[in-house]
């Protein structure tokens, strides 16, 4: 019995089993998945924040007074984009004509079907002139992003514009990158063993 005690004492003292290794250092959250920015920047946001508005200055190439813009079509009826606008993807359903939304007499303005001209930063009204129920939801803060304060007494609610998320020429919400899924064993094996107690 004495020997048993002595052996136990020595074994415990020398720590023959060893301590569980410290859990691996915590993985950091990837900042790209906690970024609250909108998918893209609307014209209004670009103008407000002083961003790159070079895409909005049509007059630097076009002068409608000298040469009115003409639109050319392919044999299948789709629009033929000139070289300078090849970056546009036209996928807005049957709404595939430039001057359904742009004002041909002043390219820096937008024009609704009923002839109302709008500034480029008023795009939401243009979209709403066709997408009525969506505009109604957007005005109520239901469609699209509304961030900031739910309580108007504490602060303002900021609603994103249509084009903060949708590309007007190809408005379907694009596929985006998914954040990694749950991983209950992201802790090292030691951490998992500690968890099993």
């Amino acid at each position: 019995m004495t020997i048993l005690f002595a052996v136990t004492a020595t074994a415990l003292w020398r720590d023959v089993w060893g301590h569980p290794a410290a859990p691996s250092s915590a993985p950091l959250l990837d900042a790209q998945f906690t970024n609250t920015a909108t998918l893209r920047m609307s014209a209004a946001e670009l103008i407000r924040t002083g961003g790159d508005t070079s895409g909005l200055t049509c007059g630097s190439c076009h002068d409608e007074k000298k040469k009115p813009v003409s639109v050319h079509f392919n044999a299948d009826g789709t629009i033929r984009l000139p070289e300078e606008h090849k970056d546009l993807v036209m996928q807005h359903g049957r709404n595939n004509h430039c001057f359904n939304c742009h004002d041909p007499s002043n390219l820096e303005l937008l024009k609704t079907r009923d002839g109302t001209t709008l500034k480029v930063e008023e795009g939401t009204k243009l979209c709403g002139s066709c997408h009525g129920p969506t505009l109604r939801d957007w005005e109520a803060g239901i469609h699209g992003r509304a961030t900031g304060f739910w309580d108007p007494r504490a602060g303002a609610r900021v609603k994103a514009d249509c084009t903060s998320c949708h590309d007007a020429h190809s408005p379907a919400f694009p596929p985006i990158k998914a954040a990694p899924g749950p991983n209950l064993f992201r802790a090292s094996l030691a951490g998992a063993r500690e968890g099993a107690h």
Binding site: P23, S24, S25, A26, P27, L28, L29, D30, F33, T34, T36, F173, P175, I176, K177, A178, A179, P180, G181, P182, N183, L184, R186, A187, S188, G191, A192, G195
Partner: peptide, 21 residues
Amino acid sequence: VGCRKCVHACVAENNQSRSPE
């Protein structure tokens, strides 16, 4: 769209344990 950004923003905001997760 199932991008799980909400999951990660929640972890960052609420000081949840990163390891074990």
